[in-house]
Every structure is written in C-alpha cells, then in structure tokens.
C-alpha cells in the first residue's frame, strides 16, 4: 500500500472522529465532507478514477451542499444546546456501531484469503478493462445496455421519492 493512501486513511479517520464529537452541526457536516473527499482520494490512488469522480460529483458536490445549505438556512448554529449527547442512545449507538464493525472485520478477515473468492471472479480483469477502453466506458456500456431496465427502474424510484417528498412537504405547509 502506498504511503499516500495510509495518510489519506489517517486523515479521514481523524475527520470521522471529529464529525462524531463536534459540538456544532456545521463542523460535523464539513468533517463528513472531508471524509467523503478523502475517500475519493483513496479511490483515485488505487486507480479507480470513475468511482472517485462519482463520489466527488454526487456526495461532495451535491448532497453535502444540500446539507450545509439547510444548516445555514435554519441557522442551527444557534441551537447548539439541542445537540447534547444523550448517554443512553450514545452508548447504544457505540455498541451497535462496534458490533457492525466487528462483523464486517470478521467477515473480511475470515473470507478474504479463502480460495472460493478467487473462483468467483467476474469476467472483467484490469487487463480486459484497459483493453476495452477504460472503466468508465465499460461501466456505461454495462449500465445502458445490459442493465438498462434496472437503471430505468431506479430512476423511477427516485422520481417516486421526489413526488412523495413534495406531497409530504405540501401537507405540512397547507
């Protein structure tokens, strides 16, 4: 592993902890943004430029802007007192988080070097992908030919979600 990746991992871990324990909501939001950008950096360092870019466009460039925009609009900085830790929920959250982390770590450690994984490799190898003209080309080709029905269905689901959000918000305003 290259030292750059380790540095990125360390920074993103620090940011994640700051996000958890920060008092002001805007610090939390910005730390989350930092974590997302660092993750994009890690993706970029291992050569997965497509995922890194999508991470930046979708999460850092769109979703976090909404978060921070709404924090600014509602001026949550004033109500920092409501952001206090509630011990019961906090402990429960830590226990749940640790158990999920433990399960994931166990699964990765236990199954990572198992020969079954190697046998289940897909048809795409790095050589084949570069021969076909790069990750983005292969991905878009798969997305818009082989999986176009599921792609369209997902966009329909997003449309339903948007309509649902509008309906819910409208009822509140009326």
């Amino acid at each position: 592993m290259s030292p750059v990746i380790i540095i990125l991992c360390l920074i993103s871990a620090c940011l994640a902890f700051t996000m958890l324990f920060a008092k002001s909501p805007i610090t939390s939001a910005l730390c989350l943004l930092g974590v997302l950008i660092m993750t994009a950096g890690i993706y970029g360092m291992i050569g997965e430029h497509m995922i890194a870019t999508i991470q930046l466009v979708v999460y850092a460039g769109a979703i976090m802007v909404l978060f921070i925009f709404s924090i600014m609009l509602l001026n949550l900085g004033e109500s920092e007192n409501e952001f206090k830790d509630k011990p019961g929920i906090f402990v429960l959250g830590i226990i749940l988080g640790l158990s999920v982390f433990g399960l994931l770590a166990y699964a990765i450690v236990h199954y990572f070097n198992q020969p079954t994984i190697a046998k289940k490799m897909g048809q795409f190898t790095p050589e084949l992908i570069s021969q076909l003209g790069g990750n983005s080309k292969v991905l878009s080709h798969a997305l818009f030919s082989q999986f176009y029905v599921s792609f369209e269905v997902i966009s329909l689901a997003l449309l339903v979600a948007v309509v649902g959000a509008v309906v819910l918000a409208k009822r509140k305003i009326d």
């Binding site: 430029h49 497509m50 870019t53 999508i54 460039g61 769109a62 921070i68 600014m72």
Partner: peptide, 21 residues
Amino acid sequence: MDTGVIFILAFAGLEVYPVIL
C-alpha cells in the same frame, strides 16, 4: 483520467463551498 471532463465537473461543484463558508 478516463473520467476526464466529469472530474472537472466534480471540482466545479466544490466551488460552492467557499461561497457558503
């Protein structure tokens, strides 16, 4: 990069943050 132009769009999207901040 094989994502090229989309990468530019990603960083153009980050230009909102200094304004907000």
